[in-house]
Nucleic acid binder design. Structure first.
Lengths: 343, 343
DNA sequence: CCCGGTAGTGTTATCGCTAACAATCAGGCC
DNA sequence: GGCCTGATTGTTAGCGATAACACTACCGGG
């Protein structure tokens, strides 16, 4: 007897016709009220609203999507990564999209290769999403985007700055430039760089920013120390750099590399910042509690998210956008890991 | 002239009838092929598949959802947090769901309060999701779940262990118990604990595991040091504990607390692990590169994700599940932050 | 007084799919 | 041969919304 039955049929979710019947109007009028159509008498509108409330009616999005051919859904493709940058970006975007009334359908891929990304994009197209956002920080992801047919609103985040398509990125070059100049300004003759993986655009942008800052200052460009994003590789790089007395300043491509480097320096007895200065990138929440507190570059993920959403919605509404590339400058956060070089 | 037109009508996405016409069958037969219905002749099946491929046909999910009343969508509600635990859980779940053929619709909320969660759940119900997963690690989130009407398949992750509803959690108690016992086994007379925020179930479970391990060993229970999850509060707690010579072993509720604590110990000249042993919780990727490498407890997020998905799908298929609570035990990862107490 | 315009509302067709049932055909059995 | 059975396929009727158009008052102007 617990089954919700009315008469002989099982109760189902109320539909527009149920509301219409209760309010004594046609279902079309209910639709007009729901969509804010102007030509509905105030009194009718109120009756319909009351009926909606009474029945607990909720519009069926599938039906609407079927007839309009659109959804209020944004598809996001991201790597299965908990790296701080991508994860923060994702969270910021989901929040921004949600607050703009869009649902976010997320597809994680194990690897950012052509097949996976193509599949994820197809998956979203199957769902008839309004637009797609791809977090594509690697070269392989970039290639995959070539396969995406035009006509689908699509914004790339953290992708290849050379691409002509719609894209939003953190200004890696400016951040790295500023980090490097900050170290030079402290009096260091040059700055070493521990870089991220070479197939990441973020990493490459930071390398170029570093190089350009050195060049602008007329400083010697030391060999690049290639690593990945992990504390482990930062540690290995640090073990090498710690043995070289001429190394007095290091800019690492992210904070976790810096963490590993700090440990290597500490093990070798090289004091930071007295003997070696270090600047990171990302400003992870715990960076202020490294030993010593880390000077680093903070990207504005909220701004990237807002720009991304704006660009995507502009494409949805207008089809094409004139200048579809946005760059968001990061800021330097100064803490205790930078000092003048030893005399 | 660039518009894709055929005859006098603008080309639209091919529908089932287009496939049917090309294959010389009825649209229903196409539907049967798509849904793997048994009674279709092999030859017909092949003709239909060929037509599908030729047209690049993709089924319209909105139409299917409309008629079946179901979707292949799972709604997830999560806080807008980049804390390692919740973020990893989320990523693992999204991947698992995706590989099981489900799309994930994600709704982030700024705060885990009653209103936000209720709204997020409504949002998902509007979308007619097949089921909902709420990552509800705090007391406030737990309250909000009381408002969710029965009948919607729903699984809580990291929620209140006392709740009777479907839930999957990391076994906080077991992890904390093991961490504490590991320190006692090393010879420490007792173990101090720096806890997470008291409104988090994770934090409370870890506190109880710690207490029970001390009680089981007949060790004295020192006062609890209450903190939040941040390295900052770990640092503050560490500044206090570093001054107390009787403190030789500390279990922190997560790795970032441990990081802050390590820095405070280092500043005060208390050597880890020679004078003070430390165990964390989470096994963040960089924990192996703390100074010293951190012994910690590693939750199995992939297993939690799998259990969650399994439980949710079981509810979708069977309505009710007999024993809807799953606990996933974590494992201790031993590194260099634990040693016997100083003589 | 008739006409056209406009506000407000209803009627009907349609989106693309699945469910239910009907129709057809072949083979086996009496 | 006629009938039953099962495999295969087609026909029809919705699902719940929007779009297009039709209809009814009511208004003012000629």
């Amino acid at each position: 007897m617990d089954d919700p039955v009315v008469g002989s049929k099982v109760a189902r979710e109320p539909a527009m016709t149920d509301v219409a019947r209760l309010a004594g109007v046609s279902h079309q009028t209910v639709s007009r009220v729901l969509n804010g159509h102007p030509n509905v008498r105030e009194q009718t509108r109120l009756r319909v609203r009351a009926a909606i409330a009474e029945l607990g009616y909720r519009p069926n999005k599938a039906a609407r999507a079927l007839v309009t051919g659109r959804t209020q859904l944004i598809g996001v493709v991201a790597a299965n990564s908990t790296l701080y940058g991508p994860a923060s970006l994702l969270a910021a975007f989901e929040l921004a999209a949600g607050e703009a009334g869009f649902a976010v359908s997320l597809k994680r891929v194990r690897v950012l290769d052509r097949t996976s990304i193509a599949e994820a994009v197809e998956h979203h197209r199957d769902q008839r999403v309004a637009g797609i956002v791809v977090i594509a920080p690697t070269a392989s992801a970039n290639e995959a985007l070539a396969d995406v047919p035009a006509g689908v609103p699509l914004v790339t985040v953290d992708g290849d700055p050379e691409r002509a398509t719609a894209m939003v990125t953190v200004d890696q070059h400016a951040g790295a430039f500023e980090a490097t100049r900050h170290l030079l300004d402290a009096g260091h003759r040059t700055v070493w760089h521990v870089s991220g993986p070479p197939d990441w655009f973020d990493a490459m942008g930071r390398v170029r920013g570093w190089q350009d800052a050195l060049a602008a200052a007329g400083a010697e460009v030391p060999p690049l120390v290639a690593a990945d994003w992990s504390a482990a590789s930062g540690y290995r790089s640090g073990q090498m750099l710690a043995r070289m007395p001429e190394v007095t300043a290091v800019f690492t491509a992210n904070d976790h590399l810096a963490l590993g480097l700090l440990r290597a320096m500490s093990e070798r007895g090289r004091k930071v910042p007295d003997e070696v200065s270090v600047v990171g990138f990302d400003d992870v929440p715990e960076a202020a509690y490294f030993i010593p507190p880390l000077t680093t570059v903070r990207p504005d993920f909220d701004a990237v998210a807002r720009e991304t959403l704006g660009l995507l919605l502009a494409q949805v509404d207008e089809g094409e956008v004139a200048d579809p590339k946005r760059t968001v400058p990061p800021t330097l956060v100064s803490r205790d890991s930078v000092a003048p070089p030893p005399a």
